[in-house]
């Protein structure tokens, strides 16, 4: 692997080297493009259906004559979605809860990852085992015991109650992933920074943290998707209607008289936008982040 060790940037499959096996290459390129197009259609079709359902008249969504393209477009569904009470407060709750739990989770998992990557201490293995064992617990099964625990702690109907739950549920994965990045950073860098007069913390902030950025991005997108799309815990822990998160608010479109699917689809489209934007933003970092983290265990 040390053969001419190219920097990783240059080994991207750019396809700029058609110098050898030209025929086979172009032919296989066509095959792969075809695979790509098919996969794109399969993956994107439900997404397309979500958006198109949000835009078509409500009674066409479950029409007996399904058409791939709506007969007419309407924004009524979006109007009803936005008019549903507590939309504003739900955005606020979601932002507070997800923002805090993701940031907090990143902070805790980074320092924990730093500890297990850089120090040999008694209990290190046990700690890593705990991190993994926690992921085995079936989430629905723990619902009532966790509720009671939160009740004891006084976290019911409080943002922090939900924040703690979300934070904890993404901690193991985040710690594991970030640890992979920390071990990738040569400690010499850190040491030279310390020689230059930085404290350990200073070295951490100035030298290590920037190098962790992809790992943090990767871990944060996981935590964000977890938290943003979670419904049951938030519904059970939060009680005031104006504290509900967006995914709980989404359930308002279902009443005993059925579901307003048009508004539901419109609302889900709106809710998905911030995640997709964030995702697009960090996606490049994340791809490399995931790999480095995972490879290093």
């Amino acid at each position: 692997m040390s053969v001419t060790a190219p920097s990783r940037g240059t080994v991207r499959p750019s396809g700029k080297s058609p110098a050898y096996r030209p025929d086979r290459k172009t032919r296989s390129r066509h095959v792969h493009n075809l695979v790509g197009v098919v996969a794109f259609v399969v993956m994107a079709f439900p997404v397309y259906w979500l958006v198109i359902s949000a835009l078509r008249p409500n009674n066409e969504i479950r029409s007996y004559d399904q058409t791939l393209w709506p007969s007419s477009f309407t924004l009524d569904n979006f109007q009803r979605a936005v008019d549903m009470p507590n939309f504003g407060s739900a955005i606020q709750s979601s932002l507070i809860i997800c923002g805090t739990s993701v940031l907090g989770g990143m902070l805790l998992s980074t320092i924990a990852a730093f500890a297990i990557a850089r120090f040999q201490f008694i209990g290190r293995k046990a700690f890593m085992m705990i991190l993994l064992a926690v992921q085995l617990l079936p989430p629905t099964a723990m619902l009532i015991p966790i509720y009671i625990q939160l009740n004891e702690l006084g976290g019911l109907n409080q943002y922090w109650g939900v924040i703690v739950l979300y934070l904890v549920s993404s901690l193991p994965f985040a710690t594991w992933m970030i640890r992979g990045f920390v071990v990738n950073i040569p400690k010499e860098l850190e040491e030279s920074a310390m020689v230059d007069g930085c404290s350990r913390m200073g070295a951490f902030w100035r030298v290590i943290l920037p190098l962790l950025a992809p790992g943090l991005a990767a871990a944060s997108i996981f935590s964000l998707i977890n938290a943003w799309n979670e419904y049951l815990l938030a519904y059970i822990v939060l009680q005031d209607n104006d504290k509900y998160t967006l995914n709980v608010w989404l359930m308002n479109f279902t009443t005993s008289r059925g579901t307003d699917y048009g508004a539901l689809m419109a609302a889900s489209t709106l809710i998905a936008i911030p995640v997709v934007v964030f995702f697009m933003f960090v996606q490049k970092n994340m791809a490399s982040g995931l790999t480095s983290g995972a490879v290093k265990g």
Binding site: L143, N151, L232
Partner: peptide, 13 residues
């Protein structure tokens, strides 16, 4: 959809 679950939990607290 999930009211009874919530009530079951709430009554335990």
């Amino acid at each position: 959809s999930d009211k009874t679950k919530k009530l079951d939990a709430a009554l335990a607290g």
